[in-house]
Amino acid sequence: MKSIADIKAIRDKMKGQINLRDNKDAEQEIRIVVGMATCGISAGARPVFNAFVDDVASRQLRNVKVTRTGCMGMCALEPIVEVHIPGEDPVTYVHVDPDKVRKIVANHIVNGNVCTEYLIGEERK
């Protein structure tokens, strides 16, 4: 059975990688922000957050941070996810689910192609 002490192997691996990063890498960090207020949680934001964590970990994307925030003000469109890539306009995805997460990570985060079909603008058409 795993315990906190078993984290040592992961810690040593991460430390090696963190030492390789410099300040320039920190500026290039991609942020994925998931709305996690009551509206987001009840609409399914928790599995979305965890799907991002799983995908980022399994793809070993070292410059991507998954974070959460409060209500983004459009409760009917939750779960809402914002993707912030340095030097680009933020992109807002709505009605996100774990399947869409996999496509957003593969197409947008890894390959740089925005998943236009999940954008907030598309939802309103």
Binding site: K2, M14, V53, A57
Partner: peptide, 11 residues
């Protein structure tokens, strides 16, 4: 090491 690193969270 940051607790919110995805590898740590999966563990």
């Amino acid at each position: 090491v940051d607790i919110s690193e995805p590898d740590v969270l999966v563990f």
